[in-house]
Design a protein around this nucleic acid. Structure first.
Length: 325
DNA sequence: AAGCTAGTCAACCGCCCTCGG
DNA sequence: TCCGAGGGCGGTTGACTAGCT
């Protein structure tokens, strides 16, 4: 096993930190700060490498650290964010004040194991009758399912969490349109699919835009559209007619207007984080999707003309968005 | 009480990126 | 442009612990 360049100059201590070491590090950081981590061990009188000091400080000693069990809200948020960004623990941690990427990663890995084991158990139960043994396919299926075994049932977002590889959808998308794919963070009530599953939360629907889905959505009461899901994320296909829409982002909302300037669609960004997330790779299969152009400060549709512009403070587009089309 | 197992979590490893010389 | 140092971060390991037999 190799060592870090910063850790091979002299003998460095490894393993658990003693209270004395913690005290030394705390005393040094609080009085001097940590301009250069590689200098911290020597100046603080520690026989550790700079990286080890940094890790100890960030993951354990810094004063704003928040310890203890994750609250249901935090758990929900982690699941939501993981659905969007995958194993970007630092990114996820940045949305949970006081939590570290390491803590979240550990939590998630425990959570995954539980979920996969549960799924495997049920998969084995069903395959036992068909004489199928526990195979990697079962594991894959468990992987596919576990992250989305939540009320939203957005199963067309299924993915292999360990690799972020795009997987084939395990059921048809709820909307048959092949037009714009988008994803954003919102929250709200419930949209039910044909089988009664909670697919997404919907508060407002534009009648014309969602006409084709009326058989799936019994009531389309209003003029604006507000997607959301129980887990705070909606992802799906926008209905057609996008080419004549313009978007205006106002704070937490994106208004998509038709040619007459009438609201066709209101997409609300209600909480959790500031990104719109769209899979860039999806453009090959779905050449017409919505994304936030950070440089242009505009809502863009790839493969079509620009849909809208805004001066909002929406965050950067995510280039990695785990989904399947 | 002892041994085993699964879960948790702190810490390390190694890769990658950025930046400055 | 190249190279090395430093730092960030995801993956992995292994010590510890609680619960079960």
């Amino acid at each position: 096993m190799g060592q870090h360049s910063c850790c091979n100059q002299q003998k460095v201590k490894r393993g658990l930190w003693s209270p004395e070491e913690d005290e030394k590090l705390i005393r040094f950081i609080t009085t001097h700060g940590y301009g250069c981590w590689s200098e911290v061990p020597e100046k603080a009188g520690l026989q550790r490498c700079g990286k080890s000091c940094r890790l100890r400080w960030i993951n354990y000693l810094r004063p704003d650290i928040r310890r203890g069990k994750f609250t249901p809200e935090e758990e929900k948020l982690i699941i939501n964010l993981h659905n969007v960004v995958g194993n970007k623990w630092a990114h996820i941690a940045s949305h949970l004040p006081g939590r570290t990427d390491n803590e979240i990663k550990n939590y998630w890995n425990s959570w995954i194991k539980k979920k996969i084991n549960r799924k495997l158990s049920s998969a084995n139960m069903t395959t036992r009758q068909s004489t199928t043994t526990t195979t990697s396919a079962n594991v894959d299926q468990a992987h596919l399912d576990y992250g989305y075994n939540n009320p939203t049932h957005l199963s067309f977002l299924s993915q292999d969490m360990s690799t972020n590889n795009i997987k084939q959808p395990i059921q048809e998308p709820i909307f048959s349109s092949s037009s714009t794919l988008f994803m954003l963070d919102t929250s709200g009530s419930v949209l039910e699919g044909q089988n009664g599953d909670c697919i997404a939360q919907t508060e407002y629907f534009n009648d014309s835009m969602w006409q084709m889905n009326k058989n799936q959505i019994p009531e389309l009461p209003s003029q604006v559209l507000n997607f959301s899901t129980n887990n705070g994320i909606y992802s799906g296909y926008l209905p057609p007619l996008m080419e004549n829409l313009e978007g205006i982002v106002e704070g937490q909302s994106c208004h998509l207007n038709n040619e007459e300037g009438r609201d066709e669609c209101l997409i609300q960004k209600q909480h959790v984080f500031n990104e719109w997330a769209v899979d860039q790779t999806a453009s090959q299969q779905c050449p017409n999707y919505l994304f936030w152009d950070d440089e242009q400060q505009q809502v863009q549709v790839v493969g079509e003309e620009m849909v809208g512009a805004s001066s909002s403070n929406m965050g950067p587009m995510l280039s990695s968005y785990p989904t399947a089309l």
